[in-house]
Amino acid sequence: MAEKELILISHGTMATGLKDSAELIMGEQEHVHSVCLLPDESPDDFKKKFTEAIAGMNISDITVFADLMGGTPANVVSQMIMGGQKLQLISGMNLPLVIEWLNSQMNGNDSDYITAGKAGMVNITEMLANMKK
């Protein structure tokens, strides 16, 4: 079975930081990659970096998590999808989303990444206040 690849894309270095955080929890992840749009780069620069990052990978085995829907990184990949690339793109990435993807790969099963990402958003202050009642 071919290994699935996860590409984290973001404005600034968020994608690299998220990868580093996931590896702190889950250990080194050779199938997780980051591509960052830096302040002095254009959409074309980002597309070149992204294309280089996925070179040699099986496109059907690539999932892309983007920081923000409508931002340059997600828009560049969206255009590639509209042009026929068979990438899976999900926006709103967070650490629970990445951890869920990694766990599903380790367990060999599919997962609802979006639900996991949303479930990771918790108002802890409100939760603690409700526990005192």
Rank of each mutant, 00 (worst) to 15 (best):
I7D: 00
M127C: 09
A66T: 01
I124W: 10
I54T: 10
K4S: 13
A2M: 15
K133W: 12
S10K: 04
K118N: 14
H11M: 00
L18M: 07
A129H: 13
I90N: 05
D110C: 08
A53H: 06
N123Q: 06
Q29W: 08
S111Q: 11
K48I: 08
G120R: 04
E23Y: 03
P96H: 03
V77L: 03
V122Q: 07
D61I: 08
N58P: 12
L37M: 06
A129F: 10
E30D: 12
N109K: 14
V77H: 00
E100V: 08
M80T: 03
T63K: 12
L8E: 00
S10Y: 03
A15W: 03
K133Y: 13
Q85N: 13
Q29D: 13
G92N: 05
I54Q: 02
L8C: 04
T16H: 13
S42K: 01
N130P: 01
M106T: 13
S104C: 07
V76D: 05
T125Q: 15
T125G: 15
P96S: 05
L128P: 08
A53F: 07
L102Y: 11
S111M: 11
I7P: 06
F50Y: 01
M82T: 11
G92H: 03
G84P: 00
S42Q: 01
L38V: 06
L102A: 02
M131E: 14
M26T: 09
A66R: 01
I62W: 00
H11K: 06
Y113P: 11
W101P: 02
Q79F: 13
G84V: 01
L87A: 04
E28A: 10
V32S: 09
Q88P: 08
A15T: 04
I59N: 08
I62L: 01
V64S: 05
A74C: 10
Y113I: 12
V76F: 05
M26N: 12
K4E: 11
K47W: 08
F46W: 00
Q79L: 09
A116W: 00
K19Y: 06
Q88Y: 11
P73Y: 05
V35Y: 04
E100L: 14
E30C: 10
E28I: 12
L37F: 02
V35E: 00
K47E: 10
S21C: 06
F46I: 02
D20G: 11
M93N: 03
K118A: 12
T13G: 14
I59T: 08
D45R: 03
G70D: 05
T72N: 00
S10R: 02
L97W: 00
I81P: 05
P73A: 01
N58Q: 10
A116P: 03
M69P: 13
F46N: 01
I114M: 15
K48E: 07
I124P: 07
D45A: 02
S10G: 02
N58Y: 05
N109Y: 10
A116L: 01
I124H: 08
L18P: 02
G120E: 05
A129Q: 10
K132A: 09
L97C: 07
A119S: 15
Y113Q: 15
I25E: 06
Q85E: 11
M121K: 10
L87P: 05
S21D: 03
A15K: 01
I62G: 05
K47G: 07
S91P: 05
N130F: 13
G108V: 09
T115K: 15
V35C: 00
T51I: 07
G84W: 07
E126Y: 06
